[in-house]
Design a protein around this nucleic acid. Structure first.
Lengths: 335, 335
DNA sequence: CTGTTAGCGCTTTCAA
DNA sequence: TTGAAAGCGCTAACAG
């Protein structure tokens, strides 16, 4: 229950000084074997746990990494988090995972909390914040890595791991066009999403290259989940029945689109072809299975974590940028 | 970057004492309006952030709740976490979410870290630990709540939120039997899972009530994910082709079973009926859609968090137990 | 190999 | 309304 046993208690009980106990606890410095044994025995007997808080205050190092994601119930981020955790755990770090519910204010709050807690580093995914707030907040951390969020003005010592969304948007749209589609819509995800904006660029570029007109009406924002895709598709198809293909912000949105089509009696892929993004597990499980752009989610997480740890190592102040290239996975929804 | 501004810096700069700054920062005690303004201005100008670490050391209160789940990429836990976060956030607490990769050792490590960090309370889901380790570890926390894990010997001041798995296992199996199935298998999930054991009890009870024999060979353990269900079903159906129904530990396992059946040419539900557990979103999206036992995941999370917060309030040492009853959702995989 | 002396940055008395 | 002193539990740097 109430763990009030302190290092001083152990020291007194073992008849040694605080420092000797500290050495034993941290396996640092030489301590004679008998003394060490005695201390360990006392620690065990008293049920002593060191206080991470006190240690952190003394060392100004917490052993904690903050990981911020917009929505942990999106498998994309869950998988990414897994990659981060594996690397962090292997290096003895704990991960403080925070989901912001797609709410920028909440993201700000969480960043603030992590800053107050002096975590050793922070890893922010798909930040929904505007650049000023983001850079300001990041300024409070020794080291930070941004995943899938570009900064217009390079910020000092912030690592970046990007997915080449422009490319992804392009190959997805190209695939649809190559399949003979001419009225390709884009469900763009939340307005705050930067990857959405980049995928949009790719989408537009592909249209242009194919000599197809870009119709603003065919681009609609939506929540980045199944419901969002469902609602957006329903309204889109009712006002624009000529749409013969939909490129979706992510797989969840695509699944929503799939459902809406099915309810509207639009056959996929005959009437409407659909392409998603991410290749979460779900993509291969729905019917028809989803053509999508695969992102190596766990790899992205790993890479980001490695970058952060390296930065925390402090050796170099260099802030590299890694880029992952998404890859088209063709399934039934857009053969 | 390096946030070395301390309260003392602010105090000096503002020409007041530490205490006055502290009062302003915490909105505690009376401070004259001019002084307050001046201090706030200095705080802003210097970019001061209070140190949560130092504050915690002084107050022995962190404002952090630990949440431990076996696998965050299982939507069940992601949804549950969402419920917890909502409640915690509303009360000004931060959630330290830790995924243990279904590894009991890792769970122990995480519990240890949280204890060292002196989090205000801990919420453990589906603990895979044996009772001794679990109770020992929990002993280091002021307050703790267990989700879906029963304790044989009641432990002091540990709240419990349970899902009535026995009931769930029973109604699921009953449904299969009522549908005319006679050789009902059970994919039991990990051996370390306590909910798996309870669902098994329900399964056995239903068989007994229906006068059907219990065949140990038809119960097989598996990883609690799609792959686990897939592998288990493949081997099960190859050795026991007479199986005409499968009750699955959870929906992920059930989806794996679905895929295996499809590959083996067994039609679902004609040849094999399948029932899952949890009713994660995926259940309604696969083909055929999954009959399953619904658990109000977010509600469970909310309730658990509320219980924990109440316990932390400390008023009562009472450790209530809440029980959620799963509810059958009939879809195509077992009509 | 072991102990002493200072803090880490903040809050909590208790005075002024 | 404001401040001074003591201490939360630990570690870093020296001594011995």
């Amino acid at each position: 229950m109430n763990n009030r046993v302190t290092m001083a208690d152990v020291a007194r009980e073992a008849g040694v000084s605080l420092m000797t106990v500290s050495r034993v606890v941290n396996n640092k410095g030489e301590v004679s074997e008998p003394t060490r044994r005695r201390i360990l025995e006392v620690i065990e007997r008293l049920g002593y746990r060191p206080s991470g808080i006190a240690r952190s205050l003394a060392t100004s190092r917490t052993g904690i990494i903050g990981l911020i994601v917009p929505d942990i119930s999106n498998p994309f981020f869950a998988d990414l988090a897994k990659g981060v955790e594996k690397v962090a755990y292997a290096e003895g770090y704990n991960v403080f995972l925070c989901s912001t519910e797609e709410n920028p204010q909440r993201e700000l709050d969480v960043l603030e909390s992590l800053a107050e807690y002096r975590v050793d580093g922070v890893l922010t995914c798909s930040s929904r914040l505007d650049e000023k707030h983001l850079v300001d907040s990041l300024g409070f951390f020794y080291s930070a890595v941004l995943v899938n969020r570009d900064l217009e003005n390079e910020a000092p010592s912030v690592g970046v791991v990007m997915v080449d969304d422009v490319h992804g948007g392009k190959i997805a749209t190209n695939h649809l066009i190559d399949g003979g589609r001419r009225r390709v819509a884009f469900l763009a995800g939340p307005e705050t999403s930067h990857s959405g904006r980049r995928r949009f660029e790719g989408y537009k570029a592909a249209l242009a290259e194919a000599g197809l007109p870009y119709t603003p009406d065919l681009v609609v924002h939506c929540d980045s989940n199944v419901e969002g895709g469902y609602d957006a598709t329903k309204s889109l198809l009712s006002t624009h029945p000529e749409v013969d293909a939909i490129f979706c912000y992510n797989d969840l949105v695509a699944v929503g689109a799939l459902r809406a089509c099915s309810e509207l009696g639009a056959s996929v892929p005959n009437d409407v072809a659909i392409v998603g993004f991410d290749d979460i597990m779900l993509a291969g499980l729905v019917t028809p299975s989803l053509t999508t752009c695969r992102i190596q989610r766990e790899e992205v997480g790993r890479k980001a974590a490695e970058m952060l740890l390296e930065q925390m190592g402090g050796c170099s102040g260099k802030c590299e940028t890694a880029v992952f290239t998404p890859e088209l996975v063709v399934r039934r929804s857009a053969p």
